[in-house]
Design a binder for these strands. Structure first.
Ligand code: SF4
Ligand code: SF4
Lengths: 162, 162
DNA sequence: CTAATTACGGATACATGATATCCCTATTTG
DNA sequence: CAAATAGGGATATCATGTATCCGTAATTAG
């Protein structure tokens, strides 16, 4: 059970977009180059973000992506669910219905205790991701990343932002 | 990102084994019949539990499985990790190393903030599963499951337990 | 002792989903 | 008008989950 690599890509792209000045856009090409990723495939991840309404897009030269909300309104969970989907990790196949002791046609009253425990764990996972915004992330990165690389990257990005 | 169906199977089997009297064993065949599952494939899940040391096995007729610990010492997390593996859901591919602005040969100081947030969410998930034991589960089931089915299943199992 | 039953592991086939690339279209900018 | 862009469909490839089959060693029932 492993998240798609698209998740990591999307998170990093949103981190970059969070540092972009108001009104500027960054293209798939630039984001792919910056992270060393296949442009066409990264495009699929960015399209997921667009379909989820997390980013805003513009066409043409100098077009690309920018965040649709402020960084402090965008959570990790938003991004993860946009590319990975919002489904549960535990899918109930109702195998208890196969119990030979059970009267035929017996109707169950909702999900059993097993499923509920698993779904609560899923919710704990989601809850942890919902607590962290991209404003938090940028703040942490700014404190941790080597200042030369940080400002160098920033400059590199602005040179390509439309 | 969906858990294998083996996880559900293993959880249900452990629930049954939790209700088994001390010293009795239940075979793969009986567990497969009870849940309506392919015997050979379910066997793989049970082998995972065995390799993880969660269950004890005996060969020969009247052989099968029993829990290796008391139900109040066996957690959901034990079972889930036994069949799903203990790895993280977020695997870091270190794409930040591809940043063209970064000095060549620059060495990173540990995992970045993105990975840490994802891993904390994983830990929240594990923590939720670690909190629930099979003693808890049996207690809930006993209160919720139709009494006729509950005792009927119990009788059915004991008839086949070696 | 003998025959039946069981867990276990290896080999194999199949289905599904993730990864990756290619190409066409509509739109916007310069 | 020409170049650059997001978007989406088609397709190929690969990894993983699902499922079955069979042989082996150990153990028990009769
Ligand atoms: S988890 Fe519960 S509800 Fe889901 S299949 Fe198993 S018994 Fe049925
Ligand atoms: S999550 Fe952080 S450490 Fe992992 S690849 Fe992305 S940038 Fe690197």
């Amino acid at each position: 059970m492993i998240l798609k690599s698209q998740v990591e890509w999307a998170l990093h792209c949103c981190a970059i977009l969070s540092g972009l000045p108001e009104g500027r856009y960054l293209s798939t090409k630039a984001l792919a180059e910056l992270h060393g990723l296949p442009k066409e495939y990264l495009s699929k991840a960015l399209q997921s973000l667009s379909q989820a309404g997390l980013v805003h897009t513009t066409l043409g030269p100098s077009g690309g992506y920018r965040l649709a909300k402020a960084p402090n309104e965008l959570t990790f969970l938003d991004v993860v669910e946009a590319v990975e989907g919002g489904g549960r990790t535990f899918v109930c196949q109702n195998i208890r219905a196969n119990n030979p002791c059970r009267p035929k046609g017996f109707c169950e009253s909702g999900p059993c205790a097993v499923a509920r425990v698993m779904w609560e764990a899923d919710e704990a996972w989601r809850s942890a991701l919902r607590k962290v915004t991209f404003a938090d992330l940028v703040q942490t990165l700014e404190a941790e990343v080597d200042p030369t690389i940080w400002s160098g990257t920033f400059e590199w990005v602005l040179k390509r932002a439309g």
